[in-house]
Structures are given as structure tokens and as C-alpha cells.
């Protein structure tokens, strides 16, 4: 107790937070089941591990299921997600969500960011996590930082072409 008191967030108990978050993710199975997507307790716990790791890496903190359940609910009807890549895509989405939350200086709300990710993932990225992260979200974050509309792409045509070339090689 005394040792822990040196940390200002003495009252964070990681195991309590984690269990709470896993429960909320498991609840999402009720919705995703109809798309043939479900997560086991272990997979949910791993997602939370990823989330905790990314949160820590980005200097952020979150309570409850946080955005993981929101991401699951938003992306479960994507034509580019199946049971074969479900968990892998979720890990990537969670990772990039928090990264771009910081990159957008918290100016984009969770809902806006998730909806933008979904629209780009199903649309121009055709299910490519690489294009979503390195092109679409990077562009959006830059636009937001410069006070331009997130969808504005006037200056990015050249970058887009180069990224698509890179992706073909990739």
C-alpha cells in the first residue's frame, strides 16, 4: 500500500478494470452472432490486452469496454470481415483507433473516428488495414490538425497515388 502510494493513480486496480471490460465485449456476441462473428472469453481478454498495451503506449486511459465494443458493433457488418480475420482485424483497428485519437488531438469524437474508419475501410480501402492506417487516417488526422474538413483530399492526390503504388508492391 505504501509503495503504491507513490503513484498518483493508486486507486487503479488493473484486474477489476480488465474483467469489467471483458464482460462488456462478450455481451457484443449477441449482436455479432448473426454475422457469424463471435469472440471467446480468451479472445476478448486478448483484445483488452492489446487495448491496454496501446493505451499505455499512447499515454491514455479508458474505463469499461471503452471503444472496443463500439468498434465491434460498427465493423461487424463489414463485407471484408469474416470469422477467419475477425480477431486480427479487431486488434489492428483498436491499435490504430488510439493512435489516431492522439494524432487528431482528441478533436474527433470516438463515434466520428470509428464511423470514418468504417466508411474508409469498406469504401476506398477495400478492406485494407494498411491503406486505412497509412493513408486515410493519416490524411484525416492531418486535415483535422490543420483545421480542414476530414474528407478534404485536394492536396493528397499525389500522396494517394504513391501510397497505392506502395500497397501494390506490399
Amino acid at each position: 500500500m505504501e509503495g503504491k502510494s507513490k503513484n498518483k493513480l493508486i486507486f487503479y486496480n488493473a484486474s477489476i478494470i480488465k474483467q469489467q471490460a471483458v464482460n462488456e465485449i462478450i455481451k457484443c456476441n449477441k449482436i455479432t452472432k448473426k454475422f457469424g462473428l463471435t469472440l471467446t472469453n480468451r479472445q476478448a481478454a486478448e483484445l483488452i490486452e492489446t487495448r491496454n498495451y496501446v493505451l499505455n503506449a499512447n499515454g491514455r486511459i479508458e474505463f469499461g469496454g471503452g471503444v472496443v465494443d463500439k468498434i465491434i458493433k460498427e465493423f461487424c457488418d463489414s463485407p471484408f470481415i469474416s470469422m477467419y480475420n475477425y480477431t486480427e482485424v479487431l486488434h489492428d483497428l483498436v491499435e490504430m483507433f488510439y493512435e489516431y485519437k492522439n494524432e487528431t488531438l482528441d478533436l474527433a469524437s470516438d463515434e466520428e473516428l470509428i464511423k470514418y474508419m468504417k466508411k474508409a475501410f469498406d469504401g476506398v480501402c477495400h478492406g485494407s488495414i494498411y491503406l486505412l492506417s497509412e493513408r486515410e487516417l493519416a490524411k484525416m488526422a492531418r486535415n483535422i490538425r490543420f483545421g480542414i474538413h476530414p474528407d478534404d483530399s485536394e492536396d493528397n492526390d499525389e500522396v494517394n497515388e504513391k501510397m497505392e503504388d506502395d500497397f501494390d508492391e506490399y
Binding site: E62, G64, K101, D110, E111
Partner: peptide, 12 residues
């Protein structure tokens, strides 16, 4: 209500 996460220093 816009964001469920927050920067660590603000949470502290």
C-alpha cells in the same frame, strides 16, 4: 460523452 478514453495526465 464524445470520448471514452482520456490522456493519462488529465485522468491523473
Amino acid at each position: 460523452g464524445d470520448s471514452s478514453s482520456i490522456r493519462m495526465e488529465i485522468a491523473e
